[in-house]
Design a protein around this nucleic acid. Structure first.
Length: 306
DNA sequence: TTCCAGGCCATCT
DNA sequence: AGATGGCATGGA
């Protein structure tokens, strides 16, 4: 591959499909890619471009047909099927929820919103940079981070250039002052120190060696800059612990409003409540409540229109 | 200007 | 354990 241009559909001189379709049910790509769980997707309408595990991807949904284009002549799509969690039955997830008027309302409005399975380091680093920032600004910071220290990845001619997410080993050597040029402020020290720790412990590919949710969460929380909320995001979005229930300002707000009569309750107690009340797939409930509460705040409307 | 954002940490009771 | 202020940066 050369100069950022991909040899589309060619492998060893033979044409190979660089495109693939899946039939999907209860899947809404727009909500899934734009709800704030992942920060590197850009889209116009129903067509989205991003980089997953160092590969440029374009996704497009047409009803039950989900189409992917890649700039890579490989025939293995498991990395993308895993990322998109195509095998999860959303109806099966909803069946585990308790009868709850408010959650049912959020599910009715945003049905098709899915949780992705993201690479560990990208997820951890991204949410390290998320603290006390708005989602659109997190996107900006991560974009600059990738442009500075990611590797350019091949894209089809005519598309915007793209970069991979920088590896921990790359960021571990970048002086904190240089990281700050991306606009990450005080989070630069956390990112740098955590990159080193992840590298030392050999966690970059696998994540921490916890054998369950509680162990993994506790190990993550020993990293600098990682508290309960960020640890839960990584557990949920990268490690596949679907009972993890991240409590941020929006989720705290909606839980206190709807389940605690507006009384003050600590985030850790809210997280505990969320896991116990919503069950083994509480993380999905969290994402629906998060998105619903944030949408109401943005549009001021409680209709399901997007 | 002032306030606040997908928090965390050090430093107090 | 629980409550407070500080931390960078930028947009409303």
């Amino acid at each position: 591959m050369h100069a950022g241009i991909c040899a589309e559909g060619v492998k060893g001189g033979l044409p190979v499909p660089a495109e693939r379709c899946w039939r999907v049910e209860d899947y809404r790509l727009d909500l899934t890619l734009d709800c704030g769980q992942a920060f590197r997707w850009s889209g116009q309408g129903r067509r989205w471009q991003g980089v997953v595990r160092g590969r440029w991807v374009e996704l497009e949904q047409d009803g039950p047909c989900l189409r992917a284009r890649v700039c890579d002549s490989g025939s293995d799509w498991s990395w993308l099927e895993d990322y998109l969690q195509l095998r999860v039955s959303l109806a099966g997830v909803f069946r585990t929820f308790p009868p709850d008027r408010h959650l049912e309302q959020a599910v009715a409005r945003w049905r098709g919103l899915r949780l992705l399975r993201q690479p560990f380091w990208e997820c951890l680093a991204s949410f390290l940079l998320s603290s006390s920032k708005r989602i659109d600004q997190i996107r900006q910071v991560i974009e600059r981070l990738c442009r500075h220290w990611g590797d350019p990845v091949p894209v089809p001619t005519g598309h915007q250039p793209a970069w991979s997410f920088p590896e921990a080993r790359r960021l571990a050597d970048v002086p904190e002052a240089r990281l700050r040029t991306c606009g990450m402020g005080f989070r630069a020290a956390y990112l740098q120190q955590t990159a080193r720790r992840v590298l030392e412990q050999g966690w970059e590919q696998t994540g921490p060696p916890g054998r369950n949710y509680a162990e993994s969460r506790a190990l993550l929380m020993r990293l600098p800059g990682v508290g309960p909320k960020i640890a839960d995001c990584v557990c949920l979005f990268a490690l596949g612990f679907m009972e993890a229930f991240p409590v941020d300002t929006w989720v705290a707000r909606v839980l206190r409003e709807r389940y605690f009569g507006g009384r003050p309750v600590s985030p850790e107690r809210l997280a505990e409540f969320g896991r116990a009340y919503f069950g083994p797939w509480a993380g999905y409930a969290q994402q629906y409540l998060f998105h619903d509460r944030r949408s109401v705040a943005r549009t001021g409307v409680s209709s399901g229109a997007v």
